[in-house]
Amino acid sequence: MKVLVGVKRVIDYNVKVRVKSDNTDVDLANTKMAMNPFCEIALEEAVRLKEAGVATEVIAVSVGTSASQEQLRAAMALGADRAILVETDEVAEPLHVAKAFAKLMEQEDIGLVMLGKQSIDSDNNQVGQMLAALTGRPQGTFASKVVVEGEQVTVTREIDGGLRTVRLALPAIVTADLRLNEPRFAKLPDIMKAKRKPLATTNFADLGVTVKQSMRLDRVDVPSVRSGGVKVESVDELISKLKDEAKVI
C-alpha cells in the first residue's frame, strides 16, 4: 500500500507572526519557516506504517513555491521515500490542494492519504475532507489512533467531548490530530541521504487541475488589544460585577 503524505511549508510555530503595516498580509520576510506541525505528525504515522510493514512506500507531496522543497527534503530525511512538489507561486486554496492530491491519488494508486488536520497559518481545516469528497472515499479526521487491518483502517477521532472510533474502507483519507504520535528527530545521515532521494516537480496544469480563485484576502488586522478594566475593592463587589454586569456566573 502506498501512502501519500501532505507537507505544507508554514511559519515556524515558535515564531510570532506580525501583521504588515499596510495590512495587506502578515510579514514573513526572513522568518523561520518549517513543516506544519500537524503534517509532521501525519508523516510520522506514515513512516511508522512503513516500518511496521503495512505501507510499501511513503510519498511526500507539497503544494507551494519552490521553497517548499526544503520541507520535502525534511520529510524525506524523516522517512518519506520520495517527494512531489506541485509548484505554484499563487496562494493555493484548500480546494486547489485537494484537487491536486486527488489527481496524484489516482496516478500513484494511493491506498492511504495521511494529512495534518489543519495548517497553523490559514487554520482552514479543509483539505482532507475536500479530498475525501472529491474522490468519493471515506475520511477519518482529527485522528488520535490509526490501525490498518487488511482493506480497512480503524481511526479513533478526537471529537467534542471525547473520542469516536470509525472504520473506513481503503483507500481512505486520514487527518492527524496532535495526540496521534510524537514525531521523531531527523538524523544527520538521513538528512544527507534525503538530498539524493527523488523529488519530482509538477504543477496544476500538468495535473489537469483548473484553479479557480474562491477567496480574496482583503486585509489582515492585528486582533484588538484588550484594554485594562475595572478595579474592584472587595470580593463582594467582584461577585456582583460578575453576576450583574458581566453575567458570567
Binding site: 511559519i11 510570532k16 507572526v17 501583521v19 502578515v26 497553523i120 497559518d121 490559514s122 487554520d123 480563485q213 474562491s214 477567496m215 480574496r216 484576502l217 482583503d218 486585509r219 489582515v220 488586522d221 492585528v222 486582533p223
Partner: peptide, 15 residues
C-alpha cells in the same frame, strides 16, 4: 476570520 491561531484577523471576500 482568525488566522495564525488568532494572532491575526483576516478579512476575506468569497468569490
Amino acid at each position: 476570520r482568525p488566522i495564525y491561531a488568532g494572532n491575526a484577523i483576516a478579512t476575506v471576500t468569497s468569490l
